Simulated assay, not measured.
Amino acid sequence: MTEVGPFIEAYAKEHGFNGTVLVRKQGKVAYQGSFGLANMSLGVPNTTSTKYRIASITKLFTSVLILQLQGQGRIDLEGKITDYLPDYAGEGANKVSIHQLLNHTSGIHNFDQVKSMEEALSGGLPPYQTPYTLDQLLARFGSGPLDHPPGTVFDYNNGDYLILGKIVERVYGQPFDQVLQARILRPLGMADTGLLKQRDIVHGLASTYFYRDDLKTLVNDLPSYPENWHAAGAMYSTVADLVTFSDALFGGRLIKPEALERMLTPGLDDYGYGAWVYDAEIDGRKHRIVKRPGQIMGAQTQLYHFLGEDITIILLANSGATDLDEFVAEIGKRVARMRP
């Protein structure tokens, strides 16, 4: 049996990983451990119960909520934005489908225009550093012209998922966080998961730090309003809660099998609904991988699942010093080789 623990611990030490790792295979925890500090000023260590900002793993939850609505007959994935948001003012209102929002082929002008650390340091992060409401965010940043004909180009755009979040709110007649609690979190007993808001003090939430290449050091994340990421990236969670979510999703307890199959059908750029889905070859054998990374400044995350093999790897980090794409792939190779 290949021991994954020594590799994880050596890699974490060598690459300055600051966070928590959970590896689960065939119903058993193969590894769980934490590294570094949840708060560097106070010297508070990360633990397996630390809550982390999970960034774009949030999009998987939003995709589930949309597919649940489809299963209830309340949303048609080929329906257009204006079918559910008649007041949406963008050019794509009667052109862009729910399906195209889910798989980032809407063609809507990209919500995020800051593409480098240098731009962020000099000009800030315009959509996230003013306390906008969701309606204000969509009106100001997410309702512009189309850059591409819908369905023709993959363009990863947080704005797509803010529109989806607004659709969830409109169909249910409730705020997104209330729907999230009622439809996913409470039924699964995910008590350590929720939607971040700047005003709220979340007990046990790790502070976040991004890496300054020019200074060669970690620094505090830029100030922002976390709720402005909303249905695209505003959630927090723990490794245990995310394994619970993963089990329920891939075990067919959140959406119907045909909805899960559609979610995991790659479109452009191997992207399904809220996650990348692709084949990885390990020792000459193909494995079907579902990968949902996330990154907002120092918050870095990975939900990495082997379809049909009951292998799930969760990496949650509160600093941007480590390449989690490489880390999770290397863990995955070793876990795939482990014998029961």
Rank of each mutant, 00 (worst) to 15 (best):
I311G: 02
T152Q: 06
L22G: 06
D310K: 01
D112S: 10
R334E: 07
L242M: 14
L222Y: 04
N39M: 09
G92P: 03
Y156R: 03
T48R: 13
G144M: 08
F35L: 09
A120E: 01
V114I: 12
Y278P: 15
T217Q: 14
K28A: 15
A55N: 05
L162T: 00
V29T: 12
G151Y: 02
L67Q: 02
L125I: 00
V96N: 03
G123D: 06
L134T: 04
A139P: 13
T58G: 05
T217L: 15
V64T: 09
T82W: 15
T48Q: 13
D269P: 13
T133L: 02
G43R: 08
P6H: 01
Y236N: 02
L205D: 02
K166V: 01
I201C: 14
H109S: 15
L215P: 10
H287T: 01
G274P: 02
I8W: 08
D177H: 14
D160R: 03
L196G: 07
S319N: 07
L188P: 04
K13H: 10
K95H: 11
Y11A: 11
A231C: 07
A317V: 04
S41W: 14
G194T: 02
T82Y: 14
G189R: 08
V21W: 05
F250I: 00
P86A: 12
A10Q: 13
K166D: 10
P150W: 09
P187V: 04
S122H: 15
T62P: 12
E261T: 10
T133K: 06
S63M: 02
A191M: 11
K59C: 13
R288E: 08
E326G: 05
G124V: 02
S143V: 00
G27Q: 06
K25N: 11
L249K: 02
L60V: 08
L134Y: 01
R292Y: 01
P187R: 04
Y211T: 00
I201Y: 14
A329P: 10
T301W: 13
L196Y: 03
K333V: 00
G90R: 04
R140K: 13
G90M: 05
A93I: 05
N220F: 14
G144D: 03
E78P: 11
G267A: 05
F306G: 01
V219D: 05
A336R: 05
E330D: 14
H99A: 07
N110H: 06
H305N: 14
L254R: 00
F176M: 09
H104S: 05
P149L: 15
L162M: 01
T133W: 01
H109L: 15
Y225N: 02
V23G: 09
N46K: 03
A12V: 00
G194L: 03
Q113I: 11
A30V: 13
A317I: 06
F245M: 09
R24C: 12
E258L: 08
R288N: 08
D241W: 13
L121I: 00
E309L: 10
A55R: 02
L316I: 04
Y273C: 00
L324F: 12
S143N: 07
L22I: 06
I54Q: 01
Y31H: 05
Q100W: 10
N228M: 10
T193W: 11
G173W: 08
V219K: 03
